[in-house]
């Protein structure tokens, strides 16, 4: 993958795209700015998004609004316990008149796939989706078919302690670049939400503001964002902090370092910057890392969530003052 140093125009385009999408989403989801930003960053970093919260806080609305704001194909899968893998990936049907099998693409063949309540489906079906997320391709009947690009899965999930769910295993959660806990809105935001929904569907007002090509261009720009040795040092310090923490049973994987850097680059580009700041790393550390780590028993007993532990780590790791030595950049 070749990357080029982004020009000022490209950066401005990314920033503008982010601003437009944000403004569209804001009409639907007031008070979710952080979630929206993390979502955008995930898209631009070619990651996948896991929205996790109790029902009714706007997960699906966010996902759908995103699909509308980006002028792309949107596939939507409502996961149920009886959903089969082929309902996700598509199926080959025999065309008698033509004497051949014809592949009917499943809903996963879209730029944005909204996988609602992913933890309600059986692990087998979950695995089918997660594999396509990883491979960005689907293999049906021995034939591998590429998924469109850009490809973003926005999965929503109820917290695992709700009934009738198959919690995603840790390995599967690692496939999601970010997990966003939408959370309850504030009083003001909730009143604004009531107003927005008063008499009409706010989703109808969301206009497409970016095409798939725009998105592709922005993604290419993000790849070229510069991350200085100092920032990489800081990022690695934070990730290693999760591995060293006694509050965590499982720390973040090296893949999470890669994904955290990619997301941070996207956030930098959204701000029109050509370089990553530690602030980007800090802002995305919880969304990127929290769902990959497992709090230790005593931390859970003390009522400390993974988010809280990562916040502690961020409050402990010093921001490197100078450029880090070359040895740490590993070429």
């Amino acid at each position: 993958m070749t990357t080029t140093v982004p020009t000022a125009e490209q950066l401005a385009e990314v920033a503008d795209l982010a601003r437009r999408v944000r403004s569209q989403l804001h009409t639907v989801l007031s008070g979710l700015d952080d979630a929206v930003d993390a979502t955008l960053a995930t898209i631009l970093a070619e990651g996948h998004l896991l929205l996790e919260d109790v029902p009714g806080v706007g997960k699906t609305t966010l996902a759908r609004a995103l699909g509308r704001a980006l002028d792309t194909t949107v596939g939507r899968i409502q996961f149920t316990p009886d959903l089969l893998p082929s309902d996700v990936t598509g199926v080959s049907v025999f065309r008698g008149d033509e004497h051949r099998f014809e592949f009917r693409p499943g809903p996963v063949f879209a730029n944005i796939v909204v996988a609602d309540e992913i933890n309600r489906a059986s692990p087998k079906t979950q695995a089918a989706l997660l594999e396509s997320m990883q491979e960005r391709a689907v293999t049906v009947d021995g034939e591998t078919r590429a998924l469109p690009s850009p490809f973003l899965v926005v999965a929503t999930q109820n917290p695992i302690d709700m009934e009738g769910t198959y919690p995603l295993p840790e390995a599967q959660r690692d496939r999601f670049m970010t997990r966003i806990a939408v959370g309850y809105p504030s009083t003001g935001d909730e009143i604004a939400m009531l107003d927005a929904h008063d008499g009409h569907d706010p989703l109808a007002e969301v206009r497409p503001v970016a095409t798939a090509a725009d998105l592709q261009g922005a993604i290419a720009t993000v790849r070229g964002i510069y991350a200085s040795p100092a920032v990489k040092q800081y990022l690695v310090d934070v990730v290693r902090g999760t591995r060293d923490s006694s509050d965590l049973r499982l720390g973040a994987s090296p893949r999470s370092s890669l994904q955290l850097l990619a997301a941070a680059k996207a956030r930098a580009a959204m701000a029109g910057r050509d370089h990553v700041l530690p602030d980007d790393v800090k802002a995305l550390a919880v969304p990127v890392l929290a769902h990959r780590v497992i709090p230790a028993a005593q931390a859970r007993a003390a009522g400390r969530s993974a988010e809280a532990v990562i916040h502690d780590i961020l409050a402990r790791v010093a921001v490197p003052a100078a450029r880090a030595p070359e040895a740490l950049s590993r070429g």
Partner: peptide, 24 residues
């Protein structure tokens, strides 16, 4: 870099701690 350090040193305890990024 040294200007930033000097500024923080001269502000003393009023300049926050090391875990803050410049913007923070």
């Amino acid at each position: 870099e040294s200007a930033w350090e000097t500024m923080r040193r001269r502000l003393g305890a009023r300049a926050g701690d090391d875990t803050l990024t410049p913007a923070e």
